[in-house]
Amino acid sequence: MRKLIPSYIRVPLVFFIIAGLVEYFVESGDQPAFMEKPVVLAFLLLVLLILIAIEGIVGAMENVLYQSLDEEAKARYDAQQEAPSKLVLWFKNAYKKLVGSKPIEEEGEIILDHNYDGIKELDNNLPPWWVYSFYVTIIFGVVYMIRYHVLNADDQFAEYEIEYAEAQRAIEEYKKNAKDLVDVNTVVLLTEASDLKAGENIFVSKCAVCHKADGGGGIGPNLTDEYWILGGGIKNVFKTISEGGRSGKGMVSWKKEGLKPSEMAQVASYVLQFQGTTPAEAKAAEGEIWIDESATDQETNKETEEKTEENSSTESTEAVEVVSATEN
């Protein structure tokens, strides 16, 4: 090993292997582990120093042992070091077979009669590596033709559609579990007890000072009535928490204060739990009554569907009566 690979290749190779393993096993986010965590950088530098020290110690020991040999043993050692290893010989023989060229001593056997001003031509065969590659392309072409033109396997367009659909499914699955990807357009009302408890903790620590612990309002508005300054519902409340209140006199943007999107969704969902409750000292209503237009649209659509079904049922009954009367 030491004879085949010199130390200036061996040390960096081992070092980068260790660095790669450290990077794989240490969680560091988007940045390399040694940039995110100084202790990792210190560890890698220590490993590098140890590798260099080992190379130096082993080299020094080899030199001491060499100096202790007699002249005959030194000659044998030098001859052994100069002789190529079995692996090197194997590569050389494999290269010669793949190239397929004749040694200079045997070129007389393949020289042609052509002679152009003393320049002669050799009748070399195609290199075996080229011939084997050509055979491989023929086999590949036959397999490709059978697969795609006889058996009608999925072509590139079909494979693209399949991979695209799989990628979309993976993205949707990732979005379900990655709560911090939520924004004002995708936020939904959270009802899990764990989410509401987390929202309560955030509200008590950051919001109760202005809105009171029961949501009755103090510096901030009352959160228990139907009146909203910037709109109610999960999307409006999330946006207000994220972007802040009215310019100059509203609350700060909690997005800039370090709250994650998932935390803002939790506290927004908790805030909406105050609706309809009775605080001890309720502040006077501010803003306007907010009506959930999406819920109104859903109710309207439901009523329209019910009327349509009722009319269809009436028309069917009248048609049956007409048919019965005609038969009579």
Rank of each mutant, 00 (worst) to 15 (best):
A53R: 00
A53T: 06
A53D: 01
A53K: 01
I54D: 02
E55F: 10
E55Q: 12
E55V: 15
G56D: 08
I57K: 01
I57S: 05
V58L: 09
G59I: 10
G59Y: 05
A60Y: 08
M61K: 06
M61N: 04
M61F: 13
M61S: 11
E62N: 07
E62K: 03
N63V: 15
V64P: 00
V64F: 01
L65N: 07
Y66A: 08
Y66Q: 02
S68K: 05
L69V: 10
E71Y: 10
E71H: 12
E72N: 09
E72M: 11
A73Y: 02
A73Q: 05
A73R: 03
A73P: 00
K74F: 12
K74S: 01
K74I: 14
K74Q: 13
R76E: 12
R76W: 13
Y77L: 07
Y77F: 04
D78N: 07
D78P: 02
A79G: 12
A79S: 09
A79V: 09
A79P: 01
Q81P: 00
Q81D: 10
Q81A: 13
E82R: 03
E82N: 03
E82F: 07
A83M: 15
A83T: 15
P84E: 06
P84T: 07
P84W: 08
S85Y: 09
S85H: 06
K86H: 04
L87I: 15
V88L: 09
V88N: 02
L89D: 03
L89Q: 06
L89E: 07
L89H: 06
W90E: 04
W90N: 02
F91Q: 10
A94G: 05
A94F: 13
A94C: 07
Y95S: 04
K96H: 00
L98A: 12
L98S: 02
L98M: 13
G100K: 06
S101H: 08
S101F: 15
S101M: 14
K102Q: 03
K102G: 00
K102T: 07
P103Q: 04
E106I: 05
E107P: 02
E107M: 11
G108H: 11
G108I: 14
G108D: 11
I110P: 00
I110G: 01
